[in-house]
Design a protein around this nucleic acid. Structure first.
Lengths: 152, 152
DNA sequence: ATAGATGCAAATGTTTTGCAGGAAA
DNA sequence: TTTCCTGCAAAACATTTGCATCTAT
């Protein structure tokens, strides 16, 4: 069933914090890793309940927070409203298509450096940041260029 | 009572859209402009009700949306949760102090240009963006350096 | 045996909506 | 006198919390 490294990381985190290793936690970790994407707790809950209808949405919400604390997931807040989770990895920012919801990750060292300079100029010490570019992905630009009759 | 240019702009917008010029709308516009800051609808409601207790919070929420449509206010969503409104002016981004809530505006052409390049690389057409730097302002860095006994 | 987890229901905080009465054009 | 607004109460939404029960250790 794969996801072994992450399963081990979770097990380690739970032991170190005197927390319990439960079926639900393993289940949610697996489902989350399977999706590979920027998913909401509710999406994940809907998905899991298809095969495990006895699971509670509260548990999914709580477990996603736990996975963040364990360093396996990262919380993101895009404009659309609900909290999304991504698989934790190196720092990056996002491009978000406002039509189809596609999310693309990018990183740019130059912007990072420039941010530091700006912060220095205002006497701030940056702890984190949020940089999101909203617009149309290639595909959606194409769709919107067609005559209205062809639109969904 | 000042704010004449904005009052006129609002009046013009209301006429053009066949909307009505009411005491509440004028009141909310004035209060909003007085604050000069990044304020939530609820903050504004609390503030106005001190002198005008009969006003409804619904009206404040609705009017802030109206002021955005009229181009007089702009909506912002920072990490802390509720929607804040600022007086509409040239494009800019923000530094936010996570301890005291101070918000400083900045603009950086180089970052803007770099964003465009990134978008091009991924085939995106940017419609808007969001760039927020969270950290400690000068004052709060100082406070947090002191021994714990001196903290509030 | 016991600390901790689960899942339901209810509470939360913010914002929106339905609607009857009220004010502007 | 008609169209639009207001303000209340209630709904919406996403998320969190209280609590009795259940489970991993």
């Amino acid at each position: 069933m794969a996801h072994e490294p992450q399963r081990r990381a979770l097990a380690r985190y739970l032991e170190e914090h005197n927390l319990k290793h439960t079926r639900q936690r393993e289940l949610i970790l697996d489902a989350f890793l399977d999706v590979q994407g920027h998913i909401t707790s509710d999406d994940l809950y809907q998905r899991i309940r298809e095969t495990e209808p006895q699971i509670g949405y509260t548990t999914v919400y709580r477990t996603m927070k736990l996975l963040c604390e364990a360093g396996l997931a990262a919380e993101r807040h895009f404009d659309e409203g609900s909290t999304r989770y991504e698989i934790a990895h190196d720092h990056h920012d996002h491009l978000v298509c406002t039509r189809c919801g596609t999310i693309v990750e990018f990183e740019c060292e130059m912007i990072e450096k420039t941010q530091e300079e700006i912060a220095k100029r205002y006497g701030f010490q940056i702890l984190r940041h949020r940089h999101e570019l909203y617009g149309l992905c290639e595909k959606c630009q194409g769709v919107l260029k067609r005559p209205p009759s062809e639109l969904a």
